[in-house]
Design a protein around this nucleic acid. Structure first.
Lengths: 203, 203
DNA sequence: ACCTGAACACCGTTCAAGT
DNA sequence: ACCTGAACACCGTTCAAGT
């Protein structure tokens, strides 16, 4: 998977300019930003963009690999400084905030939690999934998380929370609240977690 | 707001053809379907489409007004045949399933729960919001729903659940499950004292 | 009053021609 | 080996010309 031969100097320069510009433009205009615009701002021909990145998702992945890695690293940092349940919630919170602030990141994380067995999961997405799995395992062991929820499902639901939060105010003002609702449960009085609930229909 | 003067016969015909075709095409290809394609399939010039519907959202609204009304009506139907808590959950479930099956509907419901105080909420969106408010009020009165969640927030979270479900399998296979997770809460033991479902993890 | 379709600007993608 | 930019097909939107 690693570079077979080093790139020619000009190719490497173009490659890096494209990455830098793409990260900026995707962050500002979202995943559907104009590729032509990215090439233009990077000062290269559009063909050059396609030579390095065969499609939009490939460019998105390359542009945000470092941010994805940072997200994965952040999980372990939080795991060291907080109890498992709190670490998980805080991480999901930061993840949601990131997907709203950096607009292109949301699409990438979306592709990271998509099932579509067709394409293999890119490395940067796998690292975030793995980080989630570690936090989930710890939270489960502590009894802070029910056992029938898979890590990737939690990521999907967090993506949903980010989507909901985006609709709320366009920024992330409600992330913490919606995430708490997801984690705490919607029914039952806030001050009475167990019991006191009328019988519901058959499961 | 109602029709000042009846439309000319040919205009009315075109208008209706556009609506019918748009509903089909949006359902199939999603909110970003080509407007040109819709006009072509309806057998009218592209200018005619813009004359009747100034922008994409306007067409989307008009094309799905009846479905939105049906959704609102369905809420009251469920309220009559189920206990409040169950009626709410079932309605949200059908709403999510609808937004996945009918692809353009999702964007419309998204705009229905968006805060953006700029544009006034279109009538069809308001009717869905109102229906949600009725179900929420009943569920609250029964004690099946905590009191600090607004109806529009519940709709936003349901939208998030639909998004998460779409990532799961592309269809709606996980809606009921994710919705239950949202409604029941992620933490706390699965085998709670009252009304709990059987534990799937450890005994 | 309404419709048509050409016109314009834009975008994604490919590829022949260059160095 | 790599880059460029023209070329093609497509799309959203406007508007002069028609009826």
């Amino acid at each position: 998977m690693t570079q077979a031969r080093p790139m020619r100097a000009d190719a490497r320069r173009n490659y890096e300019r494209l990455l830098r510009v793409a990260a900026e433009v995707f962050a500002e205009h979202g995943e559907n930003a104009s590729l032509d615009d990215i090439a233009r701002r990077a000062g290269v021909g559009s063909g050059t963009l396609y030579r390095h990145f065969p499609n939009r998702l490939a460019l998105l992945e390359a542009a945000y690999t470092d941010r994805m890695a940072a997200l994965a690293a952040r999980a372990d940092e939080l795991a060291r400084s907080l109890p498992p349940g709190a670490a998980l919630v805080e991480w999901l919170n930061e993840l949601c905030a990131g997907t709203i602030r950096v607009r292109g990141l949301k699409a990438l994380l979306g592709s990271a939690v998509m099932d579509g067995g067709t394409a293999p999961v890119p490395a940067c997405c796998a690292s975030v999934r793995d980080a989630a799995a570690r936090l989930v395992a710890a939270a489960r062991a502590e009894g802070a998380l029910r056992a029938d929820v898979e890590p990737v499902e939690l990521l999907r639901l967090a993506h949903g929370v980010a989507t909901a939060s985006e609709f709320a105010d366009g920024q992330g003002g409600q992330i913490r609240r919606y995430l708490a609702l997801l984690m705490e449960g919607l029914h039952g009085r806030p001050d009475r977690p167990a019991g006191g609930r009328p019988a519901r229909g058959r499961p």
